[in-house]
Simulated assay, not measured.
Amino acid sequence: MRSFMFVALLAVACSGEVRAQDAAAGEKVFGVCKTCHQIGENAKNGVGPVLNGLIGRKSGSVPGYSYSAANKDSGITWDEPTFREYIKDPKAKIPGTKMIYAGLKDEQKTNDLLAYLKQFDADGKKK
C-alpha cells in the first residue's frame, strides 16, 4: 500500500512539473494579452509593444513603440522573476507605466504564459 501511495504522489508531483511548462495553455492565457500585444514573425506594435524575445530584453527597447518614461527609465531587463512580479501588478512594479491591466494573480497561468512567450525569439520565430 505504501508503494502505491508513493507512486501516486510521484505521479501527481510530476504532472505538476509538466503543467508548469504548458505553452499551449499559455497561448490561451495570451488571448487576453492579444488585445494590446502581438507575438510571432508578423507581429507589430499596437497599443502595447511586440513581445518577441521578451525574456532577456531591456524594458522600453522595442523600436517604434512609444513607451512611458517610467518604463524606459525602469532599468529592467526582463527575466522570469521580474516578469512574474510585473504581470501580477504592472503599476506596482513600474509606477507610471501605460499598461492598463489589473494583473495576473494565478501562478499557474503565469507559468503557462511564460512558457508560451519564451518560445519566440527576437525575430518572432519559434525556438
Rank of each mutant, 00 (worst) to 15 (best):
F4N: 11
M5L: 15
A11W: 12
A11Y: 06
S15Q: 05
E17A: 03
R19I: 10
A20W: 01
Q21P: 03
A23P: 08
G26P: 05
V29N: 06
V29E: 07
G31C: 12
K34W: 00
C36Y: 09
C36A: 15
H37A: 08
H37D: 02
Q38G: 15
Q38C: 05
Q38L: 08
I39D: 00
G40K: 11
E41A: 05
N42C: 12
N42T: 07
K44C: 08
N45G: 05
G46R: 15
V47D: 14
P49F: 10
V50M: 06
V50A: 08
N52I: 02
I55D: 01
I55E: 10
I55M: 07
R57P: 03
R57E: 03
S59E: 13
S61C: 00
S66I: 04
S66E: 14
Y67G: 08
S68I: 15
A69V: 12
A70W: 12
A70P: 00
S74A: 04
S74T: 09
S74V: 13
T77V: 11
D79N: 11
T82Q: 11
F83E: 12
Y86I: 12
Y86K: 14
I87G: 02
P90I: 15
P90H: 14
P90W: 06
P90G: 08
K91I: 05
P95E: 01
T97Q: 13
K98G: 11
M99C: 06
I100T: 15
I100Q: 06
Y101A: 15
G103W: 14
K105A: 07
E107M: 07
T110I: 09
L114E: 02
Y116S: 00
Y116V: 08
L117K: 01
D121K: 00
A122V: 15
K125Y: 02
K125L: 03
K126A: 08
K126C: 03
K126V: 09
